[in-house]
Simulated assay, not measured.
Amino acid sequence: MDGHLWLAFLAASIIISLTPGPGAVMTLSVGAQHGFAAAARAIAGLQLALLIQLAIIGAGLGAVLAASATAFLVLKVVGALYLVWLGIQKWRAVPHGLGSAPLARRQRLFTSGVLVNLTNPKAIVFIAALVPQFIRPGGSEWLQFTIIGATMVAVDVVVMSCYAGLAARIRPWLASVRVQRMQNRLFGGLFIGAGAALAASSNR
């Protein structure tokens, strides 16, 4: 991949990562509730899902998902329901002391991060439309995909880490039960809104 082409892709990756989405909502929510270390587990899960999405696109399945209304609908419904379920869980969460998440909870954060990104067919379709524009015929396709994947993951890790760090800095202001309840309902509403937006999306 030429230097100027990579810089163009880098710029596109930054814009994509900065655009608020379910991953950003999860990162901010976990960072505010449990701190940066816990949010890092969710971020790792988001990146694994991103790599899986790129592998799907590399295998040509992204085009199938874009073309098949049924496949897109099934994955969209699953993703939307999962986000709404996360939102309801967050909305109904009982406020408690701020601190590090228990071990079992930290392990679930990684899995939740994977599922939040992986069940978003709109992201797969979008990446499937974007990535081929930066693949040049005649070069090693897998090498180009490796560079693209490394760039997207690196950018997303930096952006999500900034979100997590920002959320962690405001944790001292969330000590009261009233503020924690407001925070739970804010992020619960954002998750539910993200699920509704996904449910209303199309593959066009």
Rank of each mutant, 00 (worst) to 15 (best):
A168D: 07
D156Q: 12
N120Q: 10
V131F: 14
A39K: 07
A11M: 05
S13A: 15
P137N: 13
L61S: 12
Q144D: 09
A194F: 09
K122M: 09
A199M: 01
F9C: 04
K122R: 12
T146K: 08
S29K: 11
T119A: 13
L190V: 04
V125N: 09
A168L: 04
N184F: 10
A24K: 03
I135N: 12
L190A: 12
V114K: 07
V116W: 13
V77P: 04
G60Q: 09
P22L: 09
A67Q: 03
A32E: 04
S29M: 14
F110S: 11
A11P: 06
S13T: 01
T27Y: 10
L18W: 06
W85Q: 09
R171S: 01
W6Y: 12
S13H: 00
S68L: 06
A154M: 07
A38C: 14
H34T: 12
T146S: 15
G195R: 08
L50A: 09
A164R: 06
V179K: 00
G97P: 00
V159P: 10
A104V: 14
G138Y: 03
M182S: 11
V153S: 09
L18M: 14
A129V: 10
I16A: 07
I52K: 09
L51P: 00
L190G: 01
S100K: 14
V159W: 03
I170G: 13
R169Q: 10
G193F: 07
A175G: 11
A93V: 00
A200G: 08
Q107K: 15
T119M: 14
T151F: 03
Y163G: 01
G45V: 05
L86D: 05
T119F: 15
L65K: 00
L10D: 07
G195S: 05
I56W: 13
A8C: 02
P22V: 08
I170H: 05
L143N: 06
L81P: 03
R181Y: 05
L86I: 07
A80Y: 02
A197W: 09
G149Q: 00
A199E: 01
N203C: 01
L174A: 11
S140H: 14
A168S: 11
